[in-house]
Structures are given as structure tokens and as C-alpha cells.
Design a protein around this nucleic acid. Structure first.
Lengths: 325, 325
DNA sequence: ATGAAAGCGCTAACAG
DNA sequence: CTGTTAGCGCTTTCAT
């Protein structure tokens, strides 16, 4: 910038004014400065700029369990779109679902002077997210609520309702023995979804059978074995509800192995669901939109328009997937 | 930092020394400073630190077509892992495959003082990536080569060989009329893969039939219609090779619609491929590893260990996917 | 309309 | 072992 000033025969401040499109600059001076900028290939240093108090860093931080996971990366995409729109850049980091790592990442992101932080929280508590620790940096929780002293802006899927819809559909299809297979019990989305399952049963006047409720089956292997257990009951289920994608895949693998296909409902839509040997009922949603709304909440808070913590719910919808032929 | 210095009764420089784990500090002073840091919840400002010449920003930039795309996000994951390992943070940005946007993003990333840049390039030329423009920031091309004046470090899949393997397999399965459906012809990966197709035919002594070579079918709809065209030939193909995931899905949809299933080979593995009504041959690879190696190349260059541009090739492997029952 | 000086938070270079 | 000075690149007073 100093060089530009020299070449243009003005002071650094004037260059700054031009770069920032400030009004009170002589048109001639302005173009002279712009020429100098062009010839020198000058690029303003954002780090230096945001060092000044009152200047934003134009940086957002996003912590998910794993950017490589399509669900999280869809969220990242939504956040990025909104960030991009407002001239912000996104720092992404993966906690690998480890609370310690997550905390470390948040710390690092704050060191980099991020203006706002979005978190898809791990299972651990987040009491450490105090105002002092955050130093005024707003936080938005995505997909799961944040367990902390203060309340934060939050964006969630309509988990309970989606599960309710899916299970209700199975019941309406004539199934009275509907099993549910869920992942780790402490995960918010899981318990909400099993809650929706219960709600649908209750509404239909079906007495829940605890043997049909399989919770804590993490990963594909385990959900497969859960299905095997279910099939060995004296009164096996006639349909299954999987609370997420991964579990559904495990179930499908097991069905494929055993050759015994059961109607299935899944919380999560997935590619090629309509090409399976069995009709599938899926709960779809827009994860990109979830990320976008999270970023929106963040920006509204940054702009000071908003002060009370809000929770947005992303709608879900039911779809049937089955072979055309 | 100034506050910490005051509380600890030392100078700012001493605090800096403690924060940076520099050796020549009295243990007592050190602990006094550390106490002060703890009580004040002090956090070093990375932006200010990296403002000093010779100090790294600990920031890497990554531009892909769309972080929301699982292929790209797997790359991002690999890059992030390597970055994390070396205490670096990752700035991610999506070009939406638009050259103009890509260029803009690169510009913005450079303004933020990134230490290195990874790009999955769009179709446009990249002659603008000159040393002056980059100002010493090293660049690594991922998945596709970078079309520019200078040569850059590059990490690619073994596209040609993977396609060769897939098509050879179909030929060995007894098919002599193997069709190929490819996306946009200008895409590096596509032309490499159709190249592998040709190579396999040639090796097997099969005379290529240009009617079986369908190039430029972008998206699921188009690849479906390409398959329809193929099936209307007087001598229709008995097997199909899809050069990527998206095209394969379009083909599968069309097969599902018509009820006419053809043996299929795909460059890309995909979930539930083994549950389709038709056996599928897939070319698998590790996209995370590709990202990781790209980041590795970048760090090696940053460390000055490396100066001549290198190209890494990520291995691919063939797999058969079919129903158990 | 423009410039001079001061300082954001940090760290090298040089004292002491 | 510790402190002082200076300056990274920028922008905010406050003059002119």
C-alpha cells in the first residue's frame, strides 16, 4: 500500500480511501491510485485490516464431526453460500466427534479472529462456551442443541415429526409390529426420532413392545446384528424404522445377506433407495438449507438485529421409494 | 498480551517468549506469566502474529467445485487431516465450477494471507496463476491438471488405468459390444477414462464402434437418454461403462424405467451398488488420500524441501458388486 | 480533498 | 534472563 501511495504520489491514507470506496476522493486522484494498484498488482492484506479495532475479519468458523461426511459437508455448503454472499470466508475444521478435539479447534478458530462460529456439537458438554471464552463471538448450534450455561441460536431438523411421519406410514400400511433401530442413545437426533416413533405408535393405539426398540447400535455392523436379533423373536417385526442413513445401510446389508426383506422406513433419503428389492419410506430434508439458515442466524446476530436466542426448525417430508418395474 | 504483561509484572516480549515456548525464560517468571495468561484467559491473536514478516499464517486455502459434493468434501477431509497435523487451518471455498468465481475466490484467499493453495480446477484456463499474482504462495492441483504457464504440483487419480481395468473386465466377461457414456468432453478425467476404454478394446482386438461412444452427456437425465439411444441401435451394446458416478445413476434410472438391465461398469464406487438387480463392476479409489497427498506436496514445498513440480498418482482398484442372494 | 501521526497485537533485533 | 524499540499493513482520528 505504501508502494502504491508512492507510485501514485499520494499518501497511504488516500490509497486506503480508494480501496475502501470512500466518497471524499478526487476522481482524478482516484483513477491515478487505481492505476498504481493495477500496475503493482496490489492486494489489500485482510489480516492487517482486521487488526484494527472495529474491523471485521470476514471469517466464519465451522466445526463439524467430519467435513468428509456428506451430511456435514452439505451443511458446510449452506453456510458457505451465505458466507460468500456477504463476502465472508469459511474456516472448516473436523472434531472427529471428539469433545477434546472440538474444544481445541474452537480455541484455534478463535485465535484466528473469526467473527462467528457454527458448531455441530459432539456429545460432550459445552459449559466451557462462556461469554468470556468467546469474547463476543456469537455461536450457532447446528443439527443438535448445545449443552451450555447460556442459550445459543440453534437450527435443527424436525426430527420428532419426521420419525412420527415415517412410522405412521408403516402403521397405515398395515404393520402393527414395527421395530426401530437407533444409534447411540445419547445423541439428540436419535432420541428425538425414537420419540417420534413412540408418538406414532401411541396415536395409533399400538402398545409399544420394548423388544422391538433397539437403541445403541452404532455403525452398520451393529445395526445388522440388531436386525438379526429382531428376526429371532417369537413374534418378529413386520417392518423396521431406521433412525438414520448408516443404520439403514447396515439393515439393508443384513437383509441382503439373509434374503429376508422387510419393509423399511429411514430417517434420511439416500441415492438409489428406489432401486432396492423392497419399497422404502424415507424422510427427506435439506441439509444445505440447514447450514444456510444457521449462517443467517449468525449474520443477523452479528448485525445486532437480534439478541434473544432463537431456534429454527428445518422441515422434513416423507417420500416413498420403490422400483418402477 | 499487554494486560498479561502488566499482571505478571513483566514486559510484553517476555509474555511472547512464554507463549512461544522460547527457552531463555526463568522458570519462575514463566509460571508467573502462565498464571496471568490463565486468569485473563489470554489467547494470542494469530492475525497479528502472522503480520510480522517471516511468520506463517498457518492458513491453507482450498477451492473445489462444491464442498457439498461428497467427492470434493472427501478431498477436503484429506487436506484438513494433513493441515491439522501441522497446526494449520483450512479455508474452504466453492467455485461452483465457474472459472470467474474460482478466480475471485483465489484472489480473496490470497488477501487472507494463506500460506498455500489447493485447487480442484474448473474447466477454464489458469494462465492468470502467475508467480507475481501468487506472490510466492505455492499451489497444488487436485484431481485435474492446472492449465497454466508454469507447472504446479499435481495429484491425480489413475484415471486411464482404472477405466482400462473396468472395460477389460467387461470384455473378459464375454462382452464384445461395450458402450461408454461420458460427461463433458473437455473434462480431463473424462477424456482419460474414455482413453482407458479405447485402450482396453484395442488390447482385446475389438474394433471400436463410434456409435457405442457417447460423450458429452452431462447429468443424470442426459446419460439416461444416451442409454436409450444406445438401446435403439441395430446392434445394441451388451454392457455399458459409465465414466463417473452421476452418469451411472442416470443409466441405472433409465434401466429401472425400461426394465432392461445391462451389465454395468462404473468409474467410482457407490453405496448400495451391491444391491442392484444387476451386477456392477466399480473402480474404487481413496479421495481422502488424494487430498492428503495434495496437502503433503504443499507442505513439502513450503518447507523448501522440494522445488521441481511433481505429480502424484492415486491408485485405483477394481471391485465386483452384486447381490448376495 | 488530502495527509500526519498513532496504534491494532505481535515479535525480531538489539540492548542491558 | 529480560526490556526497549521498531515496524508488519492497515485505518482512525484530527489537522490542513
Amino acid at each position: 500500500m505504501h508502494d502504491v501511495a508512492r507510485i501514485a504520489g499520494v499518501s497511504a491514507k488516500t490509497v486506503s480511501r480508494v480501496v475502501n470506496d470512500e466518497p471524499r476522493v478526487d476522481p482524478l486522484t482516484r483513477s491515478r491510485v487505481q492505476d498504481a494498484i493495477a500496475t503493482l498488482g496490489f492486494r489489500r492484506n485482510e489480516q492487517a485490516r482486521s487488526l484494527r479495532p472495529g474491523q471485521s475479519s470476514a471469517l466464519l468458523g465451522l466445526v463439524t464431526g467430519d467435513v468428509g461426511n456428506p451430511f456435514y459437508s452439505a451443511i458446510a455448503r449452506g453456510v458457505e453460500q451465505e458466507a460468500q454472499r456477504r463476502g465472508h470466508l469459511l474456516l472448516t475444521a473436523s472434531s472427529e466427534e471428539q469433545p477434546g478435539r472440538e474444544r481445541q479447534l474452537i480455541e484455534t478458530l478463535l485465535q484466528h479472529n473469526i467473527e462467528g462460529l457454527l458448531i455441530v456439537p459432539t456429545l460432550g458438554g459445552h459449559e466451557y462456551l462462556t461469554p468470556e471464552m468467546l469474547g463476543g463471538v456469537p455461536v450457532v448450534a447446528v443439527d443438535r442443541p448445545l449443552q451450555a450455561r447460556a442459550a445459543f441460536d440453534t437450527v435443527l431438523l424436525d426430527n420428532r415429526y419426521g420419525a412420527y411421519l415415517a412410522v405412521r406410514q408403516l402403521l397405515q400400511d398395515g404393520h402393527s409390529r414395527v421395530a426401530v433401530i437407533d444409534g447411540e442413545s445419547a445423541v439428540h437426533t436419535g432420541s428425538e426420532r425414537t420419540g417420534g416413533y413412540r408418538q406414532a405408535l401411541e396415536e395409533a393405539g399400538v402398545v409399544p413392545d420394548s423388544r422391538l426398540l433397539k437403541v445403541g447400535y452404532h455403525g452398520e455392523e451393529q445395526s445388522g446384528s440388531a436386525l438379526r436379533d429382531l428376526s429371532e423373536l417369537s413374534e418378529p417385526p413386520t417392518a423396521v424404522f431406521a433412525t438414520n442413513n448408516r443404520i439403514a445401510v447396515g439393515i439393508l446389508r443384513e437383509m441382503n445377506r439373509s434374503g429376508h426383506w422387510l419393509p423399511l422406513a429411514v430417517f434420511d433419503d439416500f441415492e438409489l433407495a428406489d432401486m432396492l428389492p423392497v419399497p422404502v419410506t424415507v424422510v427427506g430434508y435439506d441439509a444445505v438449507e440447514m447450514g444456510r439458515q444457521a449462517a443467517e442466524l449468525l449474520f443477523e446476530r452479528l448485525s445486532g438485529l437480534q439478541d434473544t436466542p432463537r431456534t429454527h426448525t428445518i422441515p422434513v417430508h416423507l417420500m416413498r421409494r420403490f422400483r418402477a418395474t
